[in-house]
Amino acid sequence: MTFRIGPRTSQIIAYIILLLMTIITIIVLFFIIGYVFKNGFAQLSLEFLTDRTREMGKEGGILPSIIGTLFVTVLAVIIATPLGVGSAVYLVEYTRGGLLRRIISFGADCLAGVPSIIFGLFGFIFFVIQLKLGWSILSGSLTLAVMIIPTIIRTSEEAIKAVPLSYREISYSLGGGKLDTIWKVVLPTSLPGILTGVILGIGRAIGETAAVIFTAGSSLGMPTSVFSSTRTLAVHFYILAREGISMEKAYGTATVLIIIILFVNFVAYRLMHRFMERYY
């Protein structure tokens, strides 16, 4: 007599296995965030958030790094989003899925997988030295922009491809031109997908160390313009921990970084939700 599992039992087993997998993933995630918060929350104070950094980070706060991080990230996204979305629109709407599109898509996929330190070296050689931008917020954000463009292209491309052909036909048959159709039908319909790409891009940019340490530098001064060098939160954390300057301040910095990322994602999802409600 062979041992058989009934269909009902196998359903239950599959359910339990899948549930376990999900639980494990979530536990790991919460453990990391919880661990950082446990060590970092004690560091959070008004002074820590609003004071200049003193004694290489052993004393004082992290305001210059908070400002530097926001500057670098926002500028990177402002540069990368139009370029990425524009490329995606071109690829989907203006090439007929031919060789060119496949080559560019393949290139974007490859670029998305390149380690960030390579982008850092490229940014250092090209933006910092060749274009003489120096270690600056501008160099850093340009480098990050190059790094996140592939992600934005690919997600936008998928989102735009998912817009039903019939929407375009309707727009054309009502006398709309190609640009009208893209602006008023294709882009609004694919916006949630595009925004997902942008959020992924923000996530990559805001936590990046290797690409910015070479290009934005690690100056602790308060940034005054896009040509100031700055030390982003992630870089600050890295230096504090690696040089053994202050583990407490390092965890404090990490906590702030995680809170900022959570906040950015929360705002982005709220915005997307509001948009969907208004639009659909």
Partner: peptide, 20 residues
């Protein structure tokens, strides 16, 4: 072409409403 498509309207087999 925009004039032509305004003057000669087309209704499709499956009704497609635009989002909104």
């Amino acid at each position: 072409i925009n004039d032509l498509r305004r003057r000669v309207g087309l209704i499709f087999a499956t009704p497609v409403v635009l989002p909104g």
